[in-house]
Design a protein around this nucleic acid. Structure first.
Lengths: 341, 341
DNA sequence: CTGTTAGCGCCTTCAT
DNA sequence: ATGAAGGCGCTAACAG
């Protein structure tokens, strides 16, 4: 039963007996305690190797109240941005010796609330949470008694740990880029009416700021609503926009999935990109570099967001008590064909 | 400390004391034991609610040797196919009351070996493993002493649990579809030289079978190697193919990422798809429906693969002993613009 | 630097 | 249908 597999039945006591030391000494060796005589360490290590001993992590968890697992709750892995984010979080976690349990909320409000109080929270030492539906009214739900790092900026005002990016400035830069290419009738796809603090609201703010700075009047007909930021939403919104007949020479997809949908719709209607309509997205997912035409986008520093979130969470787990709010300032405008001259 | 959060310190003893019963009775209630008097159950449940009791999962794990977590090891979530697979696995797992710990192997052989013997295996009750680099020579490494379900068909010959799809037939169907559109110079991108049983080898087999069935000679110059099935690999392989000057009127990307890369390369060279060159992929990732032109592909029944894998794993964890090898026979050819007349 | 003791919270006997 | 006791494997707290 115990060949190539992961050892089970052999305990510290067995190791201690074989090595002729106490269990505590074995524990010390296994946990890299500072002061152990090299001879003792070797003796123990030999016994460990000989028996193929592996520590029982459940027992350790029970004892110290930690599992070495962190949770990551996100809308869904099918959305490339979140898949890439998860990739980065897992890498960062692995580099720090912890593993990641992923839960999908499906962008469902109740599911997002559930994830915060789920039994599973007991299996994790802390949670990195990227909500899409929770808003300022749900601030109470985020007052949990375990380490929590919230991604994105849907919920301001609380004093919980927070990692976000500079949405307003980044969206302004994207819009300015379109303006620099001579575009004046710039639509935005994926807006959320009534919201004041989600990513959508902040990016629209940046869009408006850029228009204002360039003396371009804001035309409400160019602001296209779209709840879920999927490709389908972008395609459908773009069709609505074009059906409406308002003049358009550029589309700003509030994320890349929306922009990909826009490209799709424009292609379906035989509208040349960027000849007739320029398109820019947001997130710089891998896809953006491979579409036809390739998609200009904003690179939000995803890697840095992930490592920062993991670091904050681990610091909190380790006992740090100061409240954190980290804004990742670095973003980059990646100009590709879809906005090219 | 114990408001919205996930309860911690209150134990079964506390509940038992408040309810005036023994801990065993509380345990029975919590675990939905069959024979409990309704009155007793209510009493206990009331005490549980009043104290906000949550069972300590570490203690339970220690006691029964199970964590309720299953592992999922895959190359990387950045590859859309695997992100979508993970999505499906997580959903299937959730529906069955378990959660998923994801580990990325980065398509690195050593990493793939490590994942099988890692300490983390102790946190999981079993593993769903999608290897990319392990081959027949590594069969021994798969002889582990915990429930393991292998995805894909890189390693035949062992008697471990296995979920795969009908790669040969599906690839034959893809190729036949191109032939049906009048194509005769069909290249394949992403082949793995020297392999005999991976997805690449099997799909190439199907390709060859289709050619043979239609009396089309096999031209080795049309078989383009490509190790990692990323978009970049597909683009680069396509450039190599076109640089070589051999006549081509269709490209079969052995997965969608490769096909997306091919579309990208063709677009960059101003070659019309499908006018001059038709393109088909494999996997039917979400992207395929949104590229320009939209990408024809093979839908492999990803959802069914995921649920089957989870079901097999859970059955094995529950103690089933018969060796399984399940082939998911259902695939579908999705014809889109990239192969359109 | 190393040994001893006493639980962590639960579930599995074995009684009743 | 419920209670009592013991231990799963580990580590924190003290000795020494």
């Amino acid at each position: 039963m115990n060949g190539t597999g992961v050892g089970g039945n052999v305990t510290m006591h067995d190791v201690a007996a074989l090595a002729g030391v106490s269990v505590k000494t074995v524990s010390n060796v296994v946990n890299d305690y500072p002061h152990i005589r090299p001879a003792t360490r070797d003796k123990v290590q030999k016994a460990i190797d000989e028996l193929g001993y592996r520590m029982n992590l459940s027992a350790r968890s029970l004892r110290q109240g930690r599992t070495g697992i962190i949770g990551l709750a996100l809308p869904e892995l099918s959305l490339p941005y979140f898949a890439e984010l998860a990739d980065s979080v897992i890498r960062a976690a692995e580099a720090r010796g912890v593993v990641v349990l992923i839960e999908q909320t499906g962008a469902d409000r109740q599911h997002e609330l559930d994830v915060l109080t789920s039994d599973r929270r007991q299996l994790t030492d802390g949670l990195i949470f990227s909500p899409l539906e929770l808003g300022p009214d749900d601030a109470d739900a985020l007052q949990v008694n375990y380490p929590l790092v919230v991604l994105g900026e849907r919920i301001f005002g609380g004093d919980w740990d927070h990692v976000t990016m500079n949405n307003v400035d980044a969206a302004r830069a994207a819009t300015q880029h379109l303006i620099d290419q001579g575009r004046r009738r710039i639509a935005v796809v994926g807006a959320h009416a009534g919201e004041t603090m989600g990513s959508a609201a902040l990016r629209v703010l940046g869009y408006q700021a850029a228009l204002a700075a360039n003396g371009i009047p804001l035309d409400p007909a160019l602001i296209i609503e779209g709840g879920l930021w999927h490709r389908a939403t972008g395609a459908e919104g773009t069709h609505r926009l074009l059906d409406s007949g308002v003049p358009v020479d550029a589309i700003f997809g509030l994320n890349d999935a929306l922009a990909l949908g826009a490209l799709h719709a424009l292609h379906a209607r035989g509208i040349d990109v960027p000849g007739q309509v320029a398109v820019i997205g947001f997130d710089d997912i891998e896809d953006a570099a491979y579409t036809s035409p390739t998609l200009s986008s904003i690179s939000p520093g995803r890697e840095q967001i992930a490592t920062t979130a993991v670091d904050l969470l681990l610091a909190r787990i380790a006992g740090s008590t100061e409240p954190y709010r980290r804004v990742i300032p670095d973003f980059a405008l990646i100009a590709r064909e879809s906005t090219g001259g």
